[in-house]
Design a protein around this nucleic acid. Sequence first.
RNA 1: GCGGCUGUAGUAUAGUCUGGUUAGUACUUGGGCCUUCCAAGCCUACAGCCCGGGUUCAAAUCCCGGCAGCCGCACCA
Length: 569
Amino acid sequence: MNHDKMTNISVKRGFLWPSFEIYSGVAGFTDYGPLGAILKNNIMQKWRKQYITEEGFYEIESPTVSPEEVLRASGHVNNFTDPMTQCVNCKDVFRADHIIEEQIKKEVDGLDNDDLDKLIKEEEIQCPNCGDKLTEIWNYNLMFKTKIGAKGDKIGYMRPETAQGIFIQFKRLSRFFKNKLPFGVVQLGKAYRNEISPRQGVIRLREFTQAEAEIFVNPKYKTHPKFSKIKDVEMVLNSAVTQIKNESPLTITAKEAVDKGIVANEILVYQIYLAKKFLNELGIPDKFLRFRQHMPNEMAHYALDCWDVEVKTDRYGWVEIIGIADRGDYDLLAHSKHSNEDLNIYIQYDEPKTQTKEYIKPSMNTFGPKFKQNAPAIIKKLENLNVDLVKKEIENNGKYIIKINNSSFEILATDVEFVEKTEEVKGEKITPHVIEPSFGIDRIIYAVLIHSFHEAENKEDKDYFKLKPNIAPIQVSVFPLLNKKELNEIAIKIVEELRNYGLNVDYDTSGTIGKRYARCDEIGVPIAITIDFDTLENNSVTIRNRDDETQERIDIDEIKTKIDKVMKS
RNA sequence: GCGGCUGUAGUAUAGUCUGGUUAGUACUUGGGCCUUCCAAGCCUACAGCCCGGGUUCAAAUCCCGGCAGCCGCACCA
């Protein structure tokens, strides 16, 4: 790992570029150059393959601008802000709630800004730096605000996560999936957070790409049909408990993790497994990965449980690249409440359940004459009473007194019967829980680049990206050994054929062959094909492997089969 | 957002302190020559003082502001 060298080559060769550079740039934004854009697409396509093709989820695409109501309901308008205050003297800026808590040693969660302002005055909270006075509190909201429409009176925000777009479409989605749980919906796209001061390059962007899956499950069945296949897979888990006790992470199998209650359920573990598999296949080995459970106090406002997948970097230490959260029913309930829509799903039982329930049945031949015109009202009241309570009261005291308006009525044992009634219940409405793996694509690309970067070990060696063939932006380079007309002609023919076959091919005639090999190694092209004078005579070419520099003489007709083989490795 | 350091072709740098010729060098890149398998050589071309203002006869160089990068603090639901 060598962040500086890697970044240098990635900029030089067109993977990642600073944005708006000719206007001196803006922090927190990045451009994907020509190779970076392909790499990103390849990784996103691979992600789609794993979650859409292999897991059977479906993708939707929703707007990146949201009306305010959506983000009010989701909690982002209120919870995604930080109360800030500034020292009038030294101009340092602080989280208001943090410094209040620090100085009065009391939690101030849930207080609004006016309360906090009051506290600052009453408790004489001072600048922790220089002890001077603090300004009034203002909210720093991490969302980009905008206006929708010409009048500009409708507030919109750039979405801070792609997830909300899925929750909002829950009704249509559940119909699309024939109202059957579980089902999974994914969305890949941009999200926006106006970070106070982003540094760390592509690790903390103000505009970034997420790939999220929202898996809607029946809260009673958080099992997974494929779990048995992965139950023996070992993973390194750093649970909240091991973190609190300062113990080293546990290496345990998926099954043990569930059995011992370290991870809440099978679905969550399965998702951790998928994340690990995905990263392994991108070329990030297990020793650079770990799974860390959020501590109760660091959990986002919506989460029941959350595991971060972290990757080791030389520059930034362990970096979170994926979050896998059990969001429970938080989002659907929140949107249901704010929109007045039923966001639930009707679960039909396999077999109708018979429920036996006790009712209070008025004995009408005594009840009617006794209460006369008040009878209907009393009956209605009786229906809503707790049966056991009424029964006990009559058994113990011989009567139960019902008050309607200002009159009270005595219900005696002779006035009512207690009847058991059996009825069939065919199903129930439930609010699904949501399991959400959320991938930070930009961070993953950084992780892929830093971990596929091969640093020269000696003078003969060189720096290059050892990208896995299935994500390499360019799969094949085709070189004529010398820049001669007759070699170029064949080379161009092969290039065209491979391009038609669906491969990204680079054709290069400049400089010496060694230089061209070096150049294509640098950007991670896994295969090079060289045409020489023997090709003219016997139709054979040299195929070269990037990683071990081995060469093989093969027939032109074998090229595609050979490439396919490498691509699958 | 605060403080410190830094900013010269695509990259790495010389020059900045002590203002003064056409901003030098290497690699890279393009074109050409040569060349039968791992950045060889030769010729040639392209390309730079972060932006804005000030001081001065004269600013890459000194001063101020901005922007960006790095480091520390704060922030990162």
